[in-house]
Amino acid sequence: MSVICKNLTKRYLFKTAVDQLNVTFEPGHIYALLGPNGTGKSTLMKMLCGLTTRTSGEILVEDHPFTYRDKANVAFAPTEFIFFDYMKISDVEKYYRDYFRDFDSNCFHRLLEELELSPSMKVKTLSSGMLAKLKIAATMSRQAKLLLLDEPLNGIDLLTRESILKTLISHADPSRAMVISSHMVEELEPIVDTAVFMKEGRIVLQTDVESLREKEGLSIVEKYRQIYGNTDMKEAI
């Protein structure tokens, strides 16, 4: 399932979060959506899963405009706490199973085991690292065609980051596209094949990571520094 954004724009009263953006997400690829804070990465993801509507432009899913039905093929893991207060991890499983036909309970339980989570844990009492793992487990257990992961490595320790990255790699699939936004550019580099750099709501560069290395001799981190300059270097690494 390819998703095409054509002149996609999201304008607020005093700010344009996404500005005339053109990008295509093809199955079989893992995209790194990169850029400093406030460049429109999260807004783009929310538009792609229907949580925010566009001001103008188009989102085409297999050549038809995005509708609520397409949410069945898009799995989104936002950076915020999204679960209901009453939920245990087992309730999260039931919720996803009830709403998403592509949700695989066996896969979910396997991931819980790998990520050292228990179905009886109360979601409200989980640490930020555990919550990040839970969001990954729930999202990756869906066989969705487009996976959107917003800052999945944010605020969590090294070992948890490693286990999340391992999970992401193991779920890469030629039939689906994975879009990951993160400030941990260095850690993302080994698992992505395409880097999309955003600045002020626009895409300033979309490049194949391999060809970036071959043609320019640059890693994503180095390219990031080149594009955003020294002011964002700390954020980049």
Binding site: L51, R69, K71, A72, F76, P78, I82, F84, Y99, F100
Partner: peptide, 10 residues
């Protein structure tokens, strides 16, 4: 953000 879980469903 509680609305995410409600409105991201098909």
């Amino acid at each position: 953000k509680a609305g995410y879980l409600v409105y991201m469903t098909p």
